[in-house]
Design a protein around this nucleic acid. Structure first.
Lengths: 124, 124
DNA sequence: TGCGCTGTACGAGAAAAGTCGAACCATGGT
DNA sequence: ACCATGGTTCGACTTTTCTCGTACAGCGCA
């Protein structure tokens, strides 16, 4: 299976599915996304790395926070994931006890075309 | 009698260069541009507005700082213009006593294609 | 019932960024 | 010579952000 290419928005998986994805945690609507907020969220190397990892290595859907090899305490990770979600970069769902994240590729592409590709091309 | 200024003060930099423009102030090289730094510089509404204005309303080359209608004290503007220059978003040249700025469009486009367009499309 | 797991909430200290006044400098005009 | 212009530097203050420890909560499982 090919690694994801970020230039295009493939299907939007936001539909309510009968087996049911958990409802996403509160997030800004597409037309409420603000460029300065997104930029601010992506102005941190750690968060940039989170998003990039999510873009390049998502095998299926989304990953729990511990998926990434981040050597920070959990409370720090919560902080950064929340910053990304507040800015509208990430969508998070509660799967039982773990919270998984995915990049809102379609939404970002709709409002800020090309931005996702920049993050995917980023090198630490 | 023409008021000949003393040649003791070697302000040679003020001379207009026939073929060229004044040398830009120190700035990061193209391949030293960092996405997180650029994002950080563009995560502020005021700076976003500066860059966007520069992109959309540049009539010729570049503009002095006071060109924009920013109701901030001068020291604040210096701060923000410097932040933009440090991140590599702006290039600044000293024209005699005034300092003019232009967006490093080509450089940004080379490293982060599409980013300039996002700023140009931004709405306050 | 208790343990291990994932992750949150709160709060405090540290670090970074923004804000702005005041002093200053060089230039050009009158 | 003086003043206005366009801008810098410095220092102080305020605000925001980062970092992380501690405490806690829900779920699954023996």
């Amino acid at each position: 299976m090919p690694p994801v290419t970020t230039g295009r928005a493939d299907r939007v998986r936001v539909l309510p599915e009968p087996p049911g994805l958990p409802t996403p945690l509160p997030e800004p609507a597409v037309d409420a996304l603000r460029l300065e907020a997104v930029m601010g969220a992506l102005s941190d190397p750690l968060r940039l790395r989170i998003v990039r990892t999510l873009l390049l290595e998502r095998e299926e859907f989304d990953h729990p926070c511990g998926w990434f090899a981040l050597d920070r305490p959990k409370s720090s990770l919560t902080h950064h994931f929340r910053a990304l979600r507040d800015a509208g970069v990430l969508r998070q769902r509660q799967y039982g006890l773990e919270r998984r994240s995915e990049v809102r590729i379609a939404d970002l592409e709709a409002r800020f075309p090309g931005l996702v590709a920049l993050v995917a091309a980023w090198t630490p």
